[in-house]
Write a protein that binds this DNA or RNA. Sequence first.
DNA 1: AAAATTGTATTATATTATTAATACATTTTT
DNA 2: AAAAATGTATTAATAATATAATACAATTTT
Lengths: 124, 124
Amino acid sequence: MIRINVDLNSPLPAYQQIIQSLKIEVLSGRLKNGDRLPPIRELAKLLKLNPNTVAKAYYTLESEGFVESRPGSGNWVNVRAPGLDGLKRSMLDGETRAYLDRAFSLGAGLDDVRNSVERIAAHE
Amino acid sequence: MIRINVDLNSPLPAYQQIIQSLKIEVLSGRLKNGDRLPPIRELAKLLKLNPNTVAKAYYTLESEGFVESRPGSGNWVNVRAPGLDGLKRSMLDGETRAYLDRAFSLGAGLDDVRNSVERIAAHE
DNA sequence: AAAATTGTATTATATTATTAATACATTTTT
DNA sequence: AAAAATGTATTAATAATATAATACAATTTT
């Protein structure tokens, strides 16, 4: 059984919490390629949210390529060829791209980035 | 003369554009430690914004430690001991911290991060 | 000490983002 | 072909954020 946590007190919007939960389910292996997601209405009822809020989460995941929506049929996990590790990698690469953009716009070079990563990681 | 660009058509809020401009001025060396920033009202008039919008930018920079506000006196650039390179480093480190948080919460390890950084950087 | 200059706080307005209400269209099942 | 289950679109209500209007407090200058 998959786990989807939505805390209405959190500052993070509900639809983003759904997205985050589903990504974690995929990364953990509890959701696999080809699996069917809960129907929009069903999940909405469970979370006490409007169906449109769930639909927004699914729609966003679809635009990211992780989900395929079929009217009348349902929403399906779409994790292509590379499998689980590939998915994790592509999600990480998205974060890395955004980070490098910000770093370079600060005038940092790749060496600066490497140093910063090692320095901060060492302090965890 | 320092440069502060605010484009009201940009989706980025005006106060954030001010913050960004000022950080660039510091990194470029046009603003140095101990320099005085333009008075809130003066900059607001120049940019055709409400003084509170400029104040919000200054206040945020203060909370980040880059500015010191003194009522009646003004706002002063506060870049401590390490100098310019140190400032760049501390700004970069802030970005790195946020990035590593996101990466680790995806389940990535440090090796994954190193690989991703090198792979993405190579494609620039 | 008075006036001018400066940052701060409070409240109101406008804009944007999020969520909800409702009706519609497609597919599947019977 | 009818009914049920599903995703989609349109519009409205709500909440969050950004900006502005105005009044206040502290400092500096004269």
